[in-house]
Design a protein around this nucleic acid. Structure first.
Lengths: 118, 118
DNA sequence: CGCATTGGTTAGTAATAGCTTACCGTTAGT
DNA sequence: ACTAACGGTAAGCTATTACTAACCAATGCG
């Protein structure tokens, strides 16, 4: 279930793929046109689209000899939800900790007072 | 300036690094303790922490012979903001497109009706 | 003082990822 | 039917990355 996060994350980790993602957020585009804009060849674009598709971020449909790719709003929304959950956990816990300056030290060794704090 | 996104993204793209991130979201932890929990050695943890630190996601402070790492709420919030912007752009444009079933076809060739839509 | 604990860094290795070239199937137009 | 355009896939190369083992500096304690 957490695989969506994994796939989505390293789908967006690549700059070229993010460029495709951005271009696709303006509307459906054919593979060839993406390749024309990007600094890589068409096969590279195909491979990137494959990754994005497996991550559930894009969908494609045939249009004559061409194939139009566009964002999959559901997939994007789902990934966004995963991210939001991650941020919330991270920042939420921090918030809770900031309120209690020093809590009960779960495991003794951990929370020693720091000598110089620099 | 978009480098924060890049750094943050491939900082979180790695599963081990995400595990560290999750563990750190529960509070400050020493390197050794992270290594004890994770399936990798301590040097690997150090290297991962370095990446997370360069991405601005964690901060560290000395505590005796140990070094405690914790999330940097500012960095996390900043990365989150970048993501939110990305999602908004992606889904916002899509929203706008969904409202106009077929717009004026910027470049003629593009928006043909799909034959089978499968 | 040694001595142990902690942790950052380096060197080296194996796996992975992104790219290109080449090839092939499919569709549209004449 | 022939031809051209589009695009997916395979093979191969290169660069990057995650890892370990080994070494070294710093701190705390007896």
């Amino acid at each position: 279930m957490d695989t969506y996060l994994q796939a989505g994350l390293d789908a967006l980790a690549d700059e070229t793929r993010r460029a495709i993602f951005r271009r696709l957020s303006a509307g459906p585009v054919a593979v060839n046109e993406l390749a024309r804009v990007l600094p890589v060849t068409r096969p590279a674009v195909s491979q990137h689209l494959k990754v994005l598709k497996k991550a559930g971020l894009v969908i494609d449909r045939k249009a004559g000899t061409r194939r139009l790719y566009q964002l999959d709003p559901e997939g994007v929304a789902r990934l966004r939800a995963h991210f939001d959950e991650m941020w919330t956990k991270a920042l939420g816990n921090f918030q809770r900790m900031a309120e209690k300056p020093l809590m009960g030290a779960k495991d003794g060794k951990q929370c020693r007072a720091r000598p110089k704090s620099n």
